[in-house]
């Protein structure tokens, strides 16, 4: 299951960190946490909702934690962590996209990621724990922030 959705974990790692080493550490930590808490996964809730919730919570805790205390899974497992390159123009646009998102706050990063993943407002609300109205307001605010960033 985790392997099927590893692209999501990669995107979350890149949204929260710009340095490859940090992205790698977060990626490993998310995979480990998903793996560890898989037993607690409730079949009644959707797999992807649960996965986003665990992954985003892990990313937020990861930012707060002392990295030396983290349980490392395997440094060998992610030798080829970097994505295969796209064409240069696309690569540049993606880089710029991640950079713009990284300017946002921790919570905003999570919300915009879910928005870009195509999640509806009510789905974002159920993953993040905010109300649907609050999610709508936050997305509008993020749009403004991003517009402002672009114009600068």
């Amino acid at each position: 299951m985790i392997q099927e959705h590893e692209g999501i974990i990669y995107k979350i790692s890149r949204v929260y960190f710009d340095q490859e080493e940090d992205q790698k550490d977060l990626y490993q930590e998310i995979v480990y946490q998903l793996w560890k808490s898989y037993d607690s996964f409730d079949d009644r809730s959707k797999w992807s909702t649960w996965m986003y919730r665990v992954a985003l919570n892990t990313a937020i805790s990861f930012l707060k934690r002392d990295k030396s205390k983290l349980k490392k899974v395997s440094s060998e497992g992610l030798d080829n962590f970097k994505m295969e390159p796209f064409d240069p123009v696309m690569e540049e646009r993606i880089e710029w996209l991640y950079k713009s998102i990284q300017e946002l706050s921790v919570v905003e990063k999570g919300i915009i990621l879910l928005y870009l993943e195509g999640k509806r407002h009510d789905e974002i609300a159920s993953i993040t724990g905010f109300s649907t109205t609050n999610v709508g307001t936050r997305i509008s605010r993020i749009k403004e922030k991003l517009k402002h960033q672009i114009s600068n």
Binding site: Q3, E76, I94, L97
Partner: peptide
Amino acid sequence: MKGLWENMSEELDRQKLLTDKM
């Protein structure tokens, strides 16, 4: 941005990061 994100996601789905070793 959403369109670009979708393109990237499709590309990512084709790639394997999580190794059997891990």
